[in-house]
């Protein structure tokens, strides 16, 4: 099968790769680029473990073809922390015990960040609606929702000072 040459930006860095036409963006990230932080739970768009941001929208990477990344800007969980400092959401997930096994966490972090980027003051309902595509089997979601709320109020405090 003829490979396709793709140029995109991943986590702020130019990324060039070859992929087969049938390879999903999830396979490219994990198997070609070895960015294994993005997880596979279902490979059909129904668990959210593979959530990445693509040109400002969150998408399940398993439902995007690698070739579709041409010219796109992609953000994965590996691009959330800035240097050696965790993002506030990542810290909030840790202090709020929002993960147990942690397999869903990369997807939740990427999705929650996208929510807070566009809505710094979400209600509980808005958080629950936004995160409904991300399954977590361990936590019952309580501490995840609270950690997103805690991050939002922290951001509000920071921006008001």
């Amino acid at each position: 099968m003829q490979s396709i040459h793709v140029r995109s930006t991943i986590n702020g860095q130019p990324a060039e790769f070859l992929c087969e036409p049938r390879q999903s963006l999830l396979e490219v990230l994990r198997d070609v680029l070895r960015l294994t932080g993005t997880k596979e739970g279902c490979n059909d768009g129904n668990c959210g473990a593979c959530t990445v941001e693509m040109d400002g929208r969150i998408v399940p990477a398993c439902l995007v073809l690698g070739a579709e990344a041409e010219g796109a800007e992609i953000l994965t969980v590996e691009g959330i922390a800035k240097g050696s400092a965790l993002h506030d959401l990542q810290s909030a997930f840790l202090t709020g015990a929002a993960l147990q096994c942690g397999i869903c966490t990369p997807g939740f972090i990427v999705a929650s960040k996208a929510l807070l980027d566009q809505n710094p003051n979400p209600s509980e309902d808005e958080i629950r609606l936004w995160l409904a595509n991300n399954l977590c089997r361990c936590t019952g979601y309580d501490k995840i929702v609270r950690s997103v709320q805690a991050t939002a109020s922290l951001c509000r405090e920071e921006s008001s000072t």
Partner: peptide
């Protein structure tokens, strides 16, 4: 804070398929 926490919120933790 759990000891394996940073690895699990940054995508660095190595699961089976990784």
């Amino acid at each position: 804070v759990r000891h394996d926490g940073a690895d699990k919120v940054t995508g660095r933790a190595v699961y089976g398929a990784d």
